[in-house]
Computed example of a mutant assay.
Amino acid sequence: MGVTWEEINQWKVEQFIDTFGTIYEHSPWVAELVWEKKPFSSWEQLHTATSSIVASADEERQLKLLRNHPDLGARLELTDHSQHEQQRAGIAAMHEAGLEELRQLNREYTGKFGFPFIMAVRHSTADLILNELKRRIQLDREQEFKAALQEVYKIAGFRLQDWNAEQLLTEQG
């Protein structure tokens, strides 16, 4: 039997942050603030609460969260989440010319917007990612800032789903 919502709702802040602090890339402050919104009774409710915390943060904090994300295709030290997500999208298997194009577009994007290109790459392919990057680099900063935050919310939702699947969490309790 998995963990119940009743048990999660009784966790101390440290356990909550240890468990959910990586849902938003290098931003455990989201888990810390959402802990105060307990109790939760569903994944949807928890995801909505985390998204709301980020949405209500000031722009400086949101920008820092965006900047915590790695460039897609970068050969840097990635979090386990990011590494797994990029591998599933086929980025690691891209041919060198495709990787170089992705890196060049990432540099242009970051130069224009001041944060890395962020896309929830689950269910995507390398070609879809490149096409989306080419499309979004044409947006203005305000549009792209909002688009990047929406992608962050999607990523967090996928990561919560993964944790749920790993724990076989029961919705009752």
Rank of each mutant, 00 (worst) to 15 (best):
Q172I: 14
A89D: 02
H47Q: 14
H81Q: 15
L105P: 00
L128G: 08
A31Q: 03
E142P: 06
H84F: 15
D162V: 09
A57H: 02
E166R: 14
N68T: 05
Y24V: 03
L160S: 04
Q62W: 01
S42Y: 04
I23A: 06
K12C: 11
Y109E: 01
I53G: 00
S82L: 07
K38Y: 06
S51M: 03
H95I: 13
W35R: 03
L139N: 15
T110R: 13
D18P: 01
T50Y: 01
Q150K: 15
W35F: 10
H26S: 09
L78K: 08
Q138H: 14
R88G: 12
Q138S: 15
N9V: 07
E101I: 05
L169D: 06
G114M: 12
A165R: 14
R135F: 12
I53L: 02
S51R: 00
F158Y: 13
A165T: 13
S52R: 08
F16I: 04
A148P: 02
G73N: 08
R61W: 03
Q45P: 06
D80F: 12
T48M: 07
T4W: 03
E60F: 10
W35L: 05
T22W: 08
F115Q: 04
I23M: 07
L169M: 14
A92Q: 12
I53T: 02
Q45D: 13
R107K: 14
E151I: 04
E32T: 10
M94E: 00
K134A: 11
S82H: 11
P116W: 06
Q86Y: 04
W5P: 00
W5L: 02
F117E: 02
A120T: 07
K37M: 06
L139H: 15
N164P: 04
G114K: 11
V54D: 01
E60Y: 09
G2V: 08
T19K: 13
T48W: 03
F16L: 08
E101A: 06
A55C: 06
K12G: 11
T4I: 06
V13S: 14
L105H: 02
E132N: 10
T125I: 09
A93V: 11
T110W: 07
Q167G: 12
S82P: 03
R67S: 09
A156G: 09
E36I: 10
E166A: 13
W29Y: 11
F145C: 07
A97N: 07
A93P: 01
I155F: 04
D127V: 12
R136L: 05
R88Q: 15
I137A: 06
D140K: 10
L149F: 10
D80K: 11
F16E: 01
F113W: 04
H81E: 15
D140V: 09
H69G: 01
L160T: 04
S42E: 12
Q143Y: 09
H69Q: 03
G2M: 10
T79I: 06
I91N: 01
L139Q: 15
A55H: 07
H26L: 12
W29T: 10
R61Q: 10
S82Y: 10
V30Q: 00
Q150Y: 09
P116F: 05
Q83C: 13
W29C: 03
Y24C: 01
L133Y: 05
L65A: 03
M94C: 07
K37G: 02
L160C: 05
V13A: 15
I17H: 05
D140A: 09
P70G: 06
E96T: 10
H47D: 06
